[in-house]
């Protein structure tokens, strides 16, 4: 494969209170894949994303985004945290949340202007939320909130997208809408990394997968490695998943 490497993780170890939650992770994500990270609760899926993004400091190891440290490549990366990680009663509107996606390219002090507003409206339209632009975020349904989060990532116009459980608590329509947008991103040559829970949909949604349970179990194309053997190794119980070839 002569694809470029989008994300490279070397010997990454992360610990909370001296208890390792990620242990010696090596991971290479080629450019242009739509990758699921799967693993049981407490496997360190969110922690892996957060340490790639410098939100959590690892105790060992290194991460590069297109061969450079994350701090130098921030503008290439967009991040959608877990929906539950923010306070949806915060006094702000849908459009305002999307505008936050433009803050990174603005840097400190500079305020968003007409250009950022236009981009944000376009992103809202893309996720079908334009009609709700002035709605207070607590007045949105779970699926609508997730779409606003996705629009905020889209407005960053990044090369790599990290999403932490974007399908959690959303209805089927929103799930399809989101996955279609993710597939569009991949078609445009972007790399998308998604923490995912529903094993049934992995072969349908993704072309690349990483099995994680504190240690990395396997990583590669879904068609090669998404099998009962790896599932059993990751989840510790005998797994039978119908994999469509």
């Amino acid at each position: 494969m002569n694809q470029k490497i989008a994300i490279q993780v070397d010997d990454l170890t992360v610990a909370y209170n001296y208890k390792p939650v990620l242990w010696d992770i090596d991971l290479i994500v080629p450019e242009g894949v739509l990758m699921a990270i799967v693993g049981p609760n407490g496997a360190g899926k969110s922690t892996l994303i957060k340490s790639i993004l410098g939100i959590i400091d690892p105790i060992a190891g290194s991460v590069t985004i297109y061969d450079k440290p994350y701090a130098k490549q921030r503008k290439l990366v967009a991040y959608v945290p877990q929906k539950g990680s923010v306070d949806w009663d915060f006094p702000t509107t849908a459009i305002d949340v999307v505008m936050m996606g433009t803050y990174g390219s603005l840097g400190w002090i500079k305020r968003p202007g007409a250009k950022e507003k236009k981009a944000s409206l376009e992103a809202l339209e893309k996720v079908g939320m334009l009609a709700f632009k002035n709605r207070q975020i607590s007045q949105l349904s779970g699926g609508q909130q997730q779409r606003v989060f996705l629009a905020r990532a889209l407005v960053q116009n990044a090369s790599i997208y990290f999403m932490d459980e974007p399908f959690q608590g959303v209805d089927a329509t929103t799930e399809i809408a989101i996955i279609n947008i993710l597939k569009e991103l991949r078609k445009a040559g972007k790399t998308v990394v998604v923490v995912h829970h529903d094993l049934q949909t992995v072969p349908e949604y993704f072309d690349w997968v990483t099995f994680l349970n504190v240690k990395k179990i396997a990583t590669g194309p879904v068609k090669d490695i998404f099998n009962d053997d790896n599932l059993t190794k990751t989840y510790g119980i005998n797994y039978k998943v119908a994999v469509s070839k």
Binding site: K50, L53, G54, I55, R74, V77, Y79, P81, S85, V86, D87, F90, T92, V97, M100, G104, R152
Partner: peptide
């Protein structure tokens, strides 16, 4: 509003 995004 979003400490994770702010950090990222």
């Amino acid at each position: 509003f979003d400490i994770g995004l702010s950090s990222a």
